[in-house]
């Protein structure tokens, strides 16, 4: 049995202008599991994902993907290692100057050397998997609604059949019905691909829907981690305050708290 985690943050430190954002962060994700990282705004969830994606270098620590340290890799080595990674960004991050299908097929055409004709067919296939028809393929991102842009972003993330998917606040800015539809699509795509998923969100209904496991980030570290079904049962004071949406508790409104005192 393979016990090497798919992805692992090991003792990660990251500071901005001297202020710690991640402080000795440890977390691992097993292959085939869907982990959701929850936490308040400004807690470093996006920083955490950016370190994992190699978009931001941690000040200390190690990020292991398939057991291999990714920190300090050259751009070329990073691109090779991350070929099996798909990402849905918070604002979708679609390329304005390209059509929908060109966005979805971007990796296929520009990194994998697939011909435009084949790439277009595969892009339209991916769009259909996220319930967007071929009629959306030739539109530009500015012609789409926020929900449609998320679907295109999801199609772009899954089109190359990744081994690991990252979702950065997938439902932020969406109405509850569209958010539920995006959550359902995420669950469907992760199951269809049989891949590992890492999501960050502060949307609890979304976290419960898409996560097998949930971890809570607070004060630069993971203060609780467990199966999604235990989220409402744990007596961890951080999780309780977050789930109940109370202003009083160990989490202060400015975002930082005495996280060192409590462990998962």
């Amino acid at each position: 049995m393979n016990t090497v985690p798919k992805l692992e943050w090991k003792a990660i430190d990251k500071r901005f202008n001297g202020a710690p954002v991640l402080a000795g962060l440890n977390l691992s994700v097993a292959a085939g599991r869907s982990l959701v990282i929850i936490g308040g705004s400004g807690q470093g969830k996006s920083v955490m994902v950016k370190t994992a994606l190699g978009l931001m270098r941690p000040d200390a620590g190690e990020i292991a993907l398939n057991g291999r340290d990714t920190v300090g890799l050259s751009e070329r080595a990073r691109r090779k290692l991350f070929a099996g990674v798909g990402v849905l960004f918070q604002g979708s991050a679609l390329f304005d100057s390209l059509t929908v299908w060109e966005n979805v097929a971007f990796r296929l055409i520009n990194a994998d050397g697939v011909s435009r004709r084949v790439a277009r067919d595969r892009a339209i296939g991916a769009l259909e998997r996220v319930r967007l028809g071929a009629d959306a393929a030739d539109l530009y991102p500015s012609e789409l609604s926020g929900g449609m842009q998320k679907r295109v972003g999801l199609a772009r993330a899954v089109v190359a059949d990744p081994e690991i998917l990252f979702f950065d606040e997938p439902t932020t800015g969406l109405d509850p019905i569209t958010a539920a539809a995006i959550d359902a699509l995420i669950v469907e795509q992760v199951r269809h691909l049989g891949c590992t998923a890492v999501s960050i969100t502060h949307d609890l209904p979304s976290a419960r829907t898409i996560g097998d496991d949930i971890a809570m980030l607070q004060g630069g570290k993971i203060v609780w981690q467990g199966p999604a079904r235990d989220l409402d049962r744990t007596d961890n004071p951080y999780v309780r305050q977050f789930v109940e949406g109370r202003a009083d508790g160990p989490i202060t409104s400015v975002g930082h708290s005495d996280a060192r005192a409590v462990h998962a």
Binding site: L53, L55, F89, G91, F95, F106, R107
Partner: peptide, 13 residues
């Protein structure tokens, strides 16, 4: 708008 980050995650420099 994170398009440059997106490009890097799509294995394109």
């Amino acid at each position: 708008t994170e398009q440059i980050d997106a490009m890097r995650t799509l294995s394109t420099d």
